[in-house]
């Protein structure tokens, strides 16, 4: 089973996330990771969906997604060159004497301190899934109090685009 990264452009309309998530649920497709946000255009959102499955399953996922009226474009970027990132925030239990150690680890991963409490320290870190996993494992011995990840976002390298094309419009279907 391979993981596939799909970049999906959708209408920025209410309910579109439910439509996509509902489709995955009722057709029995598993979402590994899902990140949603608007693009440079107000009327278009972009979902980066990571799905695990063989080729025929991914083909079905793509075709079924295409049937949703609100889905504008789907690109399976897995086999292309792309950059991907994820943001994690981790809150670690750290007594004052442990802070330096954790900050040293953070330095290795180029993570930043975003909050400091009397007994905790919170880092943010970006990178691909592998780096985030490694960062998490390195902090585990100190006791992770809380961890939140955004899910993966991805973009093709170089002169290739996943975009709608044409000019922006704000009066799309609701």
């Amino acid at each position: 089973m391979e993981k596939h990264t799909l970049s999906v452009l959708v209408e920025n309309s209410p309910g579109v996330l439910t439509r996509v998530a509902g489709l995955f649920a009722r057709r029995g497709f598993n979402i590994d990771s899902l990140a949603v946000g608007r693009t440079d255009r107000n009327d278009v959102s972009r979902m980066t969906i990571v799905v695990e499955g063989d080729r025929s399953l991914i083909e079905q996922v793509t075709k079924q997604l295409h049937k949703l009226i609100d889905v504008i474009k789907i690109s399976n970027i897995t086999e292309e060159e792309y950059v991907d990132r994820e943001l994690v925030m981790v809150k670690v239990g750290a007594e004052p004497n442990q802070r330096v150690e954790t900050m040293h680890i953070a330095g290795i991963f180029r993570a930043r301190v975003v909050d400091l409490g009397r007994k905790t320290i919170t880092f943010e870190c970006t990178g691909n899934a592998g780096k985030i996993n490694a960062f998490e494992e390195s902090l585990r011995p100190y006791g992770i109090k809380e961890l939140v990840r955004t899910g993966k976002i991805a973009m093709l390298r170089g002169n290739k685009f996943v975009s709608v094309g044409g000019t922006s419009r704000d009066d799309e279907e609701d």
Partner: peptide, 14 residues
Amino acid sequence: GITLPITKHNYLLK
């Protein structure tokens, strides 16, 4: 919401 899986598309007019 109820008819999401059984319509080709649906609209809630806002």
